[in-house]
Structures are given as C-alpha cells and as structure tokens.
Design a protein around this nucleic acid. Structure first.
Lengths: 122, 122
DNA sequence: GTATGTCAACGATTATTTTCGTACTTTTTT
DNA sequence: AAAAAAGTACGAAAATAATCGTTGACATAC
C-alpha cells in the first residue's frame, strides 16, 4: 500500500473523525486555509489512488476512508521505524516517550499494553 | 528545525554510521543506484540548509551531520505523533509495537526505559 | 423559465524534491 | 608538461506534491 502524503493524511484524519463526508464537510472542518477546489481535487486524486471510496448516489458525492485509521498508523510507524530507527521498534518507543509529555496514566496504559503484547503478540 | 526529506534521511543515516565522510564515501555506502553528482548536490543542499557541516580543509570536502541522531529521531517521532496519532505518544508506542516483531529482550528493555522515564522524565 | 448557488471535472500553475549532465579545478600519473 | 583521474560548482531537467481558476452540470429560488 502506498503511504498517504502530508495533505492526504490531514484529509484522512478528518474523515476518520467525521465518518463519510462531502468535500464541503472536509473543507469546512479543515484547519488549513486552502481553497475548496484544492480539497476537492485532492480527494478526487485520493479516490483514484484507492485511499478513499466515493459514493455518487447523492447530489454531492460522499467520500469515505478506505483504510482504517489503526492500519494506517501501523504502516506509518513501521515506515518510520525502518527509515529512521534502524528497524528497531524499541528505539521508536524510546523516541516516542522522549518526544512528548507522557503522563503517569499513559505509562500505566503502556505497561498494560506491553503485558498484552507479551501474552499475545500481534 | 526543518525535518529531513526521505533522501536526506538516507544520507544522514550513512553519516551517523560512518562519522565525517566525503561525498565519495557516502555514495559508495549508499544502497541506492543514484549517481555521484546526485549525492554531491544533495549534500551541498543539506549543507546550505544547515543539516550538514562542511570542512573544506582537505582535498575533498568532508561532511558531518550537524544534528545528532537521537535528536532527529525524537523530532521525527514527535512529528508523526502530531500528524497521525492525535498527539498521543501512547498511541505511537502501540503502533510501534504492532508494526514490528518485538522480542522478549526488547520488551524487557522497554520496561526498563519506562522505569527510567518515570523516575526522571526527559 | 430564468437567475443564483453549489458542485464536480479538468487543466494549469506553483513549489518542492530528486536527479543528472557539463564545465571547471586540482591532483596524480606517465 | 600533457594526459588521466577525482573533485566541486552550477544549472537545469524530471518527478512529485499542492494549489487554484475556469467551465459546465444540476438544483433551487424567485
């Protein structure tokens, strides 16, 4: 599968949050100051690439992400691990920890995830 | 700071591994089938951007990464967290785990890192 | 039924990144 | 000293990504 570009990821994030939406919806929800036709074109391209599914049943087309958020996240994480962390997920975990504020609750949940993982790797 | 592009990251990885090197060194070490002048130009651009430091003392210039590997990794991780993981490092950790094979030894080391982190957050 | 507004299609433009060919300079070899 | 080898500089082409303007289709309101 091909990884989404920067602008595409922004659109995917909106679609994941809103669910199936029109171009207008996405454009309105976007933080960026980009024009309507820009978003339209981008979503059309994404549909061609297979990143989005388009329903033409209605007056204005309704787009929907074709890939699940979690799957895309995994792929982005895998890609970054490969490119910048010498293939070591461990290093990325360290990088993730050191890159952000992580609360005690987060730490607890991460430990829980580790336990889960140990019992049943994905 | 500005994040390195794909090709730039490849060069940085080589420089981090080899230490200060000439263009020839980097070109030889590279997996990619790209021409010598391509690498040269890229490293010149990177020097302009401030990503590399250039020493002109010798016959062939010697380049060196201006940013530490760990710092760049942190920034890449932070960037990815922001763009694709709703700002939650926890989610990236999960993504990292599910994206790769992680050994028992890795898990142990991750746990150790968590303990470290809890004692003295970065 | 004509005017107004909303939308998709399409092409074109701009910006950025990646790549390479050519020319010029400096060494090294013969 | 001429030829060959190894470098850098420079410009420009090719590829990719992002943006927008214009046009025509289709509704809805008047």
């Amino acid at each position: 599968m091909q990884l989404p570009t920067e602008a595409e990821l922004e659109i995917l994030n909106i679609l994941w949050a809103l669910g199936p939406s029109t171009v207008r919806d996405v454009h309105t929800a976007s933080e960026k100051e980009t024009g309507y036709t820009t978003v339209l074109k981008q979503m059309q391209v994404m549909a061609e690439k297979g990143l989005l599914k388009r329903s033409e049943r209605y007056r204005s087309h309704v787009y929907e992400a074709r890939i699940a958020k979690e799957q895309t996240q995994r792929q982005l994480a895998r890609n970054l691990v490969r490119r910048a962390f010498d293939g070591s997920a461990k290093n990325l975990v360290l990088g993730a920890l050191s890159s952000q504020k992580v609360t005690a609750a987060d730490l607890a949940e991460i430990r829980r995830m580790l336990d889960e993982y140990e019992k049943r790797p994905l």
